[in-house]
Structures are given as C-alpha cells and as structure tokens.
Simulated assay, not measured.
Amino acid sequence: MRYVIKIVGVILCILLYDSMFIVYETNQAIVIQLGKVIREVKEGGLYFKLPLIHRVVFFDKRVLHLGRDDTQREVITADQKRIIVDAYIKCKIVEPVVFYQTVQNENGLHRRVYPIVESHIRENIGRFSLISLLNEKRSEVMKLIQNGVYSEAKKFGVEVMDVRIKRADLPEENSAAIFRRMQTEREKEAKEIRAEGEQAGQEIRAKADKLKRDLISNALKESHEIRGAGYAEATRIYNNAFKVDEEFFNFYRSIRAYSKSFAKGNTKFVLSPNNRFLDIFNKGWK
C-alpha cells in the first residue's frame, strides 16, 4: 500500500509539474493541443495547462537578426555592373500564432523571408547605377527594399524593423580587372607627371643656359669695352708724352729695342751702317 501511495504521489508531482509553465519577460508562448493552437501568451508569468495534452512553444519577443554567410547573392545594377550583395534583416515576432502556423521557427522564417528580401533587392538595385548606389541613392534603395519586405512579412506574423545591405562588393574577377585598370591609370599618370617634370626641367635648363650665355656675352662685351677704353687712354697718354719731347722719346724707344734685341749674348745682326735701327750709334759717332 505504501508503494502505491508513493507511486501515486510521484505521478501527481509529475502531472503537477507538467501542468505549469513559466513565460519569461523576453519570451512569448502558444499552447498547442493535438496540433491546434488554443491559446497564446504574450505576458511573462506562471501559467497552467493540461499535462500530457497541451504542448507549449516559446518564441523570442526581442528583435531577431536574420542573416547568414550563405545569403550573398549576385545582383546586376542598371548600368549592367555585377555586384555581390549581402543583406541582413531585423524583425520582431508580433503574432506568435500566425508565425507558428506559417514558418514555425526562425529557420523557417529565414527560408521564407529571405527570398522576398532577395527579390526586392534585385528589383530595386536594378533601377540604379553602381555609382549612385555607392553614393547618394543608397539610403533611398534601402527604404524601398524595407517597405516592400515590410508589407510581405506581415503574413508570417513578424514586423520588419530594418533591412540593410552590410556589404556590396564587386566579384573577384571584376575586382582584379578594376585593380589592373587602376594600376594602368596610375602608371599612365606617373608617366605623364614624369614627362611634365622632364619638360619643366629642360625648360629650366634651357633658360639657365641662355642666362649663362647672356651673362658671359655681356661680361665679354663689357671687358672688351673696358679694355678698349684702357688702350685708348694708354694711347692718349703715350701720344701726349711723345709730344712733350720727341727726341727723348725716340731715344727711349731705341734703347728699349736694343735691350730686347741684345738680351742674349750670342745675338748677331748683319745690317747696313745706314740702317735706321742704328741711328743713335750713328749720331753718337758724328
């Protein structure tokens, strides 16, 4: 009898435990009986159900982040540029019964919602060029995508809070081609800069050479003028001195000529006695 009472007590405890469930503040729940939803619970607290008959399914009330590595898709822009787009969705479960009946869980939601997101991404990105998507039109495209997904996601019992493109890259082969084109453009630009620098250098060297020639020419001209003026002044002084005493000056010139002519001891001259070079000696003999 004791064992029966213990067994009955254990069964009653199990049934009592199974008849209660707790809904936390971050969760919401639905009660299912034989595959049919009979109740939804959105507030936190302690609740009761029929043990072994009712089943409770919990859902998160917080914002869900939907997005995985396999969500990358290739999209064509209006100017026929291919880009790789990776988007994510933020949403909340607002109608747990509808959510359970349509998608059942987050994985099911991702499988149902993301094709819708992809469709709107292709449709809206296809209206704009790549440059505009990277600049002023990006926020407009995001708003169009979000509005389209928001209206269609209601049928799954969720409210879309945000849809964002977290990366939009060119395919690898396009990136390599763009890199090569950028490299070619930079090399071309570098050659143009070097050519311009060489041209500027040649112009500067030509100007410097011309300036050098002009300076040398002016200096030579000025030196010739100064030298000519000096010669003229020397000639004037020489002539004035010659006029003061012509006989003495002739004697002086003759003496200098003799000193230069007879500088070496072995100098020999064969001259006529009447040669003008010997006038001083001839006058002395007279």
Rank of each mutant, 00 (worst) to 15 (best):
M1P: 11
K6L: 09
V8W: 10
V8H: 08
V8D: 11
G9C: 11
V10E: 05
I11A: 14
C13N: 04
L15F: 13
L16F: 15
L16H: 08
V23E: 09
V23Q: 10
E25G: 15
T26P: 05
T26N: 14
I30C: 09
V31I: 15
I32M: 10
Q33P: 04
G35W: 08
V37W: 09
R39M: 12
V41T: 06
G45R: 04
Y47T: 04
P51E: 06
I53E: 11
H54V: 02
H54R: 02
V56P: 11
V56H: 09
F59A: 01
F59K: 01
F59H: 06
R62Y: 10
V63G: 00
V63N: 03
G67H: 02
R68I: 00
R68H: 00
E74G: 07
V75E: 04
V75I: 14
I76F: 10
A78H: 09
D79H: 03
Y88T: 06
K90F: 08
K90L: 12
K90I: 01
C91L: 14
V103Q: 00
E106K: 07
E106H: 01
H110G: 08
R111A: 03
R111M: 02
R112L: 11
V113Y: 00
V113G: 02
Y114M: 15
Y114A: 06
H120N: 05
R122P: 05
R122W: 05
I125K: 01
G126S: 04
G126R: 03
G126V: 04
R127H: 09
F128H: 09
S129D: 13
S129A: 04
L134K: 13
N135M: 13
R138S: 02
R138M: 04
E140A: 07
K143H: 04
I145A: 02
Q146V: 00
N147H: 04
G148K: 02
Y150P: 07
E152M: 14
K154R: 15
K155F: 01
F156C: 03
V160R: 05
R164I: 01
D169V: 03
E173L: 06
I178K: 10
I178H: 07
R181T: 00
R181L: 05
R181C: 00
M182P: 00
T184D: 12
E187N: 07
K188A: 15
A190L: 13
E192P: 02
A195L: 11
A200M: 15
E203T: 09
E203M: 13
I204A: 15
R205V: 10
A208Q: 13
A208G: 05
D209L: 12
L211Q: 14
L211R: 13
K212I: 03
R213P: 01
D214S: 04
N218R: 08
N218F: 04
A219Q: 12
E222F: 02
E222P: 00
S223L: 08
G230M: 13
Y231D: 12
R236L: 09
I237C: 00
I237T: 02
Y238G: 10
Y238N: 13
Y238W: 06
N239C: 01
N239D: 08
A241S: 04
A241R: 03
F242A: 07
E246R: 08
E246Q: 11
F249G: 00
F249Y: 05
R253W: 09
I255Q: 12
A257S: 09
Y258F: 12
S259W: 04
K260A: 10
K260H: 08
K264G: 08
K268L: 13
L271F: 13
P273Y: 09
L278Y: 06
L278T: 07
F281G: 12
K283W: 14
G284I: 01
K286L: 11
